[in-house]
Design a protein around this nucleic acid. Structure first.
Length: 563
RNA sequence: CGCGGGGUAGAGCAGUCCGGUAGCUUGCCAGGCUCAUAACCUGGAGGUCGUGAGGUUCAAAUCCCACCCCCGCAACCA
């Protein structure tokens, strides 16, 4: 039996994650992981924070903290928010861990041995006043082409020309504003991607039609333009020291050690219980592991080109990515979410406003799969009110109350079934098969639309059988209808659990059965006759609450949503 | 002519690969039902499918060409 390895892109530790990060990788990965587990598949779900690099050093300085302390602080905050949203990671690790260092060194040494690492001297901007080398984008100045005075050293945002820091007129440091800059020569190590171009190209070709278009086409684009050697070291302090003579005072570039972090974090997980776990089972076991990666579209080149090249270059049999889900961006009120400007909705605020499942359902049902999507409170409220309250919540409520009023607080006896039940079974067979197919293909929007259809089919069944009338003439059949409807609640719990784990648990716990979540497969009739007659159930408050117009207006104001 | 994605009812989307009477959700209107969270079920109105009195075809949202608009990316901000 193959087993499933699921990784969500490691978010940069600087600052707090917002809804865009949540839907970009964390949440879809979690839904998929929960789906697979509930089907009984052996699943390992890995996540964590990406910590090395200039932004961490700068961020730490701003908060007058030691870099390590700073990263720990934000790592812990991230992890706390992941728990708040019920993200079921098996381990939330760190790219700065000892385990990752070990793997990074192992991979680097293999690459070096195999001739994929070369040295080259480059010119780099050094700022004595900041006491550091500056990445190109940390140098600002006047664009020589358009005269824009806030052009960055890698590109002018005004005229879009690609620049070198040395092109800028009156260059200055973004950090200190100092114009006292030097160009220093510095030696760096480069990964020879061109050597692997052909091999990568052939492999990517096999992913056509399997990966989403956006992932395949971005990878193809890079290959078409021709791969270039890529620097994997930096002149920084915060990072893994490069284990090579002459480079001891340099560290690996974040994009070299970040994806390797998936492996390092798996080792962190394994090291907690070395008797029963090993990272080799997952990462050096390509024949038996299906690896699925989730990421935002900006991450696609690194996951389709650089990271696979890094693993291949070692000559070892690392587990490579099988399926890759690249998401577009979620925008807020027509603009972008922004960490630096703190614009949009951040995960810590979101969880204070509404239960995790409200967000989880809306985000997955509106996932930016084919294009960038927008978040607005009007749409959010409309979906929560209609799908969750009216269609699902109200169904559960009406069934429970009707049963209590006619049969007491227990599941009535299932008597003879009629065409109405047979047709319900048939339609649910078809719908759940479709739902499963969409989940397998990671087509989340379509999966949610099908799940909703499944919920609607319950209301439809009641409209057709009219149990409120039947109770007056035929209590046996009325019991059969309500037995079926109660079983639907249990079925819905199991089907909805990957997206709405808390709600699903509450639904299942209405019945005193003490069951685990289990994803329904095969013929639905067995799931619709599973509750034993006489099983007691609870009445509970409605599962969801509507978001009223005043609340919407208030939220728009609090979060500065523009119309 | 940098590259990629997108432009389909008021809103949000599917359909485009493999041409064949334009579909879903919401909103709106009407009817049904009255068990339920003013909920549920059914029906209806609403679109010259970005533009081109373009091309191919018996037939184009779908294929080809040109142009326009929006979003993102350009390898040192993850």
């Amino acid at each position: 039996m193959k087993k499933y390895l699921i990784t969500s892109a490691l978010l940069y530790v600087n600052g707090l994650p917002h809804l865009g990060h949540l839907i970009g990788c964390l949440l879809p990965a979690d839904v998929y992981a929960r789906y697979l587990r509930s089907k009984g598949e052996e699943t390992l779900f890995i996540g964590g924070t990406d910590e090395h690099g200039t932004p961490s050093e700068v961020g730490a300085a701003k908060e007058h903290m030691d870099v390590e302390e700073y990263c720990k602080k934000y790592h812990d905050l991230h992890a706390q928010m992941y728990r708040g949203f019920d993200l079921s990671f098996d381990y939330v690790g760190r790219t700065s861990s000892e385990q990752n260092k070990e793997i990074v060194y192992r991979i680097f040494n293999e690459l070096d041995k195999n001739g994929y690492i070369t040295e080259r001297t480059t010119k780099q901007v050094y700022s004595p006043d900041d006491n550091r080398y500056l990445p190109d984008s940390y140098v600002m100045g006047t664009c020589p082409y358009c005269g824009y005075d806030r052009a960055k050293g890698d590109q002018c945002e005004n005229c879009t020309k690609v620049l070198d820091p040395t092109d800028l007129i009156k260059p200055r440091s973004v950090l200190s504003g100092s114009e006292n800059l030097e160009i220093r020569e510095t030696k760096h190590l480069f990964l020879q991607l061109p050597k692997m171009e052909k091999e990568l190209s052939e492999w990517i070709e096999t992913r056509k039609g399997i990966w989403p278009d956006i992932a395949y086409s971005i990878a193809k684009k890079w290959l078409k333009e021709g791969l270039q050697e890529r620097g994997i070291t930096r002149d920084l302090k915060w990072g893994f020291a490069v284990p090579k003579e002459g480079f001891e005072n340099k560290v690996f570039y974040v994009w070299f050690d970040a994806p390797i972090g998936y492996i390092g974090i798996t080792k962190q997980w394994a090291d907690e219980k070395p008797a029963t776990r090993s990272f080799e089972d997952w990462w050096l076991n390509p024949e038996n592991v299906i690896h699925t990666e989730f990421m935002g579209k900006d991450n696609i080149p690194f996951h389709t080109i650089t990271f696979p090249a890094t693993l291949r270059g070692t000559g070892e049999k690392w587990t490579q990515v099988s399926m890759l889900k690249g998401m577009n961006y979620l925008n807020f009120a027509g603009g972008k979410f922004s960490k630096s400007a703190h614009r949009g909705i951040f995960m810590d605020d979101a969880i204070k406003e509404f239960p995790a499942d409200y967000w989880r359902y809306w985000l997955i049902a509106n996932a930016p799969e084919s294009d960038d999507a927008n978040f607005s409170f009007d749409q959010f409220a409309a979906t929560v009110n209609k799908d969750l309250n009216d269609v699902l919540g109200n169904f559960i409520n009406r069934v429970l109350k009707m049963t209590v009023n006619n049969f007491g607080q227990q599941v009535p006896v299932l008597g003879n079934i009629t065409n109405a039940e047979k047709e319900l079974y048939d339609s649910l067979d078809a719908l759940t098969e479709q739902y499963t197919a969409y989940m397998d293909k990671l087509e989340f929007r379509k999966a949610m639309s099908t799940l909703r259809e499944i919920w609607v089919s319950g209301n439809n069944y009641l409209a057709r059988t009219e149990p409120w009338k039947v109770v007056k003439t035929d209590m046996d059949y009325a019991g059969t209808i309500l037995n079926t409807a109660l079983n639907l609640i249990r079925l819905y719990a199991n089907l909805s659990a990957p997206v709405m784990p808390q709600t699903a648990r509450r639904m299942l716990d209405l019945f005193e059965v003490n069951e685990q979540i289990e994803f329904p497969v095969g013929k639905m009739v067995s799931y619709l006759t599973g509750l034993k007659p006489g099983t007691p159930f609870k009445l509970s408050d409605p599962l969801f609450q509507k978001i009223l117009p005043e609340r919407i207006a208030q939220l728009k104001e609090t979060y500065h949503e523009e119309d």
